[in-house]
């Protein structure tokens, strides 16, 4: 680990103040399961870490009317087993698929939602990146995965983000200057280097999900092994069905771009229909058109692209099966 200064925040306000003081040299330390390896590899240059682990508020769950408010400090292992989340099947599923049990015991909800994008050319030691000649994202001029690109295309690597976007989650951002709510769907942008729509001084404090909106949800993750893996592709589906007819559909693709891609065309195909083989095939067919992965992750871009439709089809079949 590089040398750094450590700060322990006793409250959200204090954390926000420390973050504002530290500027771009400071980062929030949640579980640290992704931040620590990145710092060891010298991918980050933070001189100050602000530990929010002691802030009780961040580990609370609160219910108000139809909404469930989840503190960003909640551990993934807790979420994967929490009965509070039973109605958000895909959310529990996704939380249980992240990495390994040990990582899930330390990793947090907020940490996973804000996890930096990943790229096979960037998540490497500094000596390796020096041999490469660096890249567009850091110290270099060209994107190694997509040579002509003017912007970094590293895909987001969160399992939870596509699911929570599909479930219509909102986030609460706290800074020294105040608070604001945002739709999680609008929390990301198409820039692998800086993919979060928040200022450096904002802390993701809460996630709110509304119950009763969707009747079915599922998350499928593409990876080579059964554990230890980041997603090469994530497909999150949330449907609202009344007597088999779909009146609301949310299909979100993860790990295919710096932001979670909403497969609007596929959603539109499903709305008003029932989950027949034909409708499923049509929605699946449209999904692949909505993303263009590049060679910056495990498994080739053409394969990942092909799997969008395949996984979406499987997800919809799984929902149909569960409902019957």
């Amino acid at each position: 680990m590089p040398r750094l200064q450590y700060y322990r925040a006793k409250s959200l306000q204090e954390a926000a103040r420390m973050l504002a003081d530290g500027g771009c040299q400071a980062a929030i330390l949640g579980g640290g399961t992704d931040l620590v390896p990145r710092m060891k590899r010298r991918q980050e240059n933070f001189k100050a870490l602000i530990d929010v682990g002691a802030i009780r508020q961040l580990s609370q769950i609160r219910r108000a009317k139809n909404k469930l408010y989840l503190g960003a400090g909640l551990k993934l292992s807790f979420l994967a087993q929490s009965s509070e989340l039973s109605q958000f099947a895909a959310f529990k599923q996704a939380a249980g698929l992240v990495a390994t049990p040990a990582i899930r015991n330390q990793a947090t909800l907020g940490g996973n939602l804000c996890i930096p994008t990943r790229c096979v050319y960037f998540d490497r030691s500094d000596q390796w990146r020096e041999s490469l000649g660096f890249c567009l994202r850091h110290k270099g001029l060209a994107c190694r995965a997509a040579p002509g690109s003017a912007v970094c295309l590293a895909p987001m690597s969160s399992d939870l983000a596509p699911v929570l976007v599909a479930l219509g989650a909102q986030v609460q951002l706290v800074s020294r200057d105040g608070e604001r709510a945002a739709r999680l769907e609008e929390f990301y942008k198409n820039d692998g280097k800086d993919h979060l729509q928040k200022s450096a001084g904002e802390i993701l404090a809460w996630v709110a999900v509304e119950s009763g909106v969707f009747t079915d949800s599922v998350y499928l993750k593409l990876s080579r092994r059964h554990s230890f893996e980041f997603p090469s592709l994530g497909v999150a589906v949330a449907l609202s069905r009344r007597k088999g007819t779909i009146d609301a559909a949310k299909i979100v693709l993860g790990s295919i771009a710096p932001y979670p891609v909403v497969a609007r065309e596929s959603q539109d195909i499903l709305i008003g229909g029932k989950l027949s083989d034909e409708l499923i095939a049509k929605a699946a067919g449209a999904a692949a058109r909505q993303a263009t992965p590049v060679a910056n992750a495990d498994l080739s871009p053409s394969y990942r692209r092909k799997m969008i439709g395949v996984l979406l089809k499987k997800a919809l079949h799984e929902i149909r099966q569960a409902g019957s």
Partner: peptide, 20 residues
């Protein structure tokens, strides 16, 4: 094409886990 190892980490190189 530089002779640089593409996967010099346990995460990327990949060996079977107990579940595999």
């Amino acid at each position: 094409e530089r002779g640089l190892h593409r996967k010099p980490s346990i995460l990327d190189y990949k060996i079977p886990t107990m579940e595999d």
